[in-house]
Design a protein around this nucleic acid. Sequence first.
DNA 1: CGGTCGGTTGACGCTTATCAATTCTCGTGG
DNA 2: CCACGAGAATTGATAAGCGTCAACCGACCG
Lengths: 249, 249
Amino acid sequence: MDKRVERCKSAGLEPAPNLCEACTARHRGICGALSDAELRELATRTIKRKIESGRTLQADGELVSGYANLLQGVVKLSKVMADGRQQIVGLQFPPDFVGRPFGRESRLSAEAVSAVEVCSFPRAVLEDMLERHSGLERRLFEQTLVELDEARDWLLALGRKTARERVASLIYMVAKHIPAGTPREAGERTSVQFDLPLTRADMADFLGLTIETVSRQITRLRQEGIVDLHPGRQIEVPDMERLAKAVEG
Amino acid sequence: MDKRVERCKSAGLEPAPNLCEACTARHRGICGALSDAELRELATRTIKRKIESGRTLQADGELVSGYANLLQGVVKLSKVMADGRQQIVGLQFPPDFVGRPFGRESRLSAEAVSAVEVCSFPRAVLEDMLERHSGLERRLFEQTLVELDEARDWLLALGRKTARERVASLIYMVAKHIPAGTPREAGERTSVQFDLPLTRADMADFLGLTIETVSRQITRLRQEGIVDLHPGRQIEVPDMERLAKAVEG
DNA sequence: CGGTCGGTTGACGCTTATCAATTCTCGTGG
DNA sequence: CCACGAGAATTGATAAGCGTCAACCGACCG
């Protein structure tokens, strides 16, 4: 048995047979930069893994040993201060690439916030592929630029927005990223329903607030009719326009 | 006269003769990825410009028309909300690259916060150079990764740090970036003195605070003996260790 | 059935914003 | 050279928004 497969097993993970041709993300994310032949090559060097919620993909300060394409679920990137204060500095959705190219250490950890499925590969594979397929580097670069933009959007949110606006911003962002659950019948308003994969604690850590403040602001948005809460972290947004307004005031 | 040179003149800018061989940044920034021959080629297509404090290099929403290497001075990147709230999302120091590769629009503006000197070139030149010198793309990519890291560090600051810690963090960061003015004689403590190129308003916009709070926290750091203020935005840090402690609490 | 965890709600206090007045700095022109 | 004015910075008084502490509810699991 392959050594990597073995390591996965021992970590309680479940490697699956891996055929890029059947992968839903093969034309998205960084894989979109590869030809069919290249995808076949990649298939021999990657492992599809399921990761349960709460498990750590990459710990703060640990050497980068591997990378992954996110296929399903949500991953949070977070930083902690010496005294325990914590801040989530990014959320990743499919088909994002997870990991830091070129082995620069970066002081952050990546953790699954829901059941997650990734296509993972060791560091050497990425480096090898980068050398041989220049389109890949461009693709990674572009994603990094998008992440930089998103980080800067959140800087604006954390620096200048009120608690209510921040919560609205988060819900708005997730609504835009998640494959819309129920876009409702055409005749009705633009009602959207989806699963919010974050706990109140995660939301607070992302928004630079406390659990209590997040909870209060959500109640407020509910009373205002901007969101509807359904059991099991389901959120319904009856009118995206109104939510969008709450994002900026 | 070259058309570009003409445009510069008309904008009140002063193009200078441009010899990469004599440039102080030729081995740093993205130029460090180029050979002597390539630098000579680049020299024919760039213009060294001086830009006065307050002038805008790239306005929010405007199409990216050109790029620049920062040779001297400091540039701020900022975002504004519809109602005027403003947030600085990044500061750039020499020899940083200024501008957004691949023409993605990004909703931010770049403005000189001190007298600035840049080596600028039109968009087409960057694209052309990128195609012909693959090391260049890597270099740009690496800088973008550093910027992403810095943005995430500030997310932690804005989300979780107190006003005092934020102000200390900013002073600390500038102290690390600015070519140290007076490292003092070897026998003494590690005293550092430098110019803080930001107004209180800029600092506030960067730290997500108000002018008044920034001012109060600086007075406090002064009373604690962590910083010394000298006329003309000169700051002296008698002991970097103590400042570093203030950064995290 | 009790225990834990996630979430909500309330009372209170602290940090920071807001409003306002004053001082400082520096460039300009008399 | 000094007076003047405008913008930058400081300081004070007050208020608001969010954090802290604590009680409580409901779901889930052993």
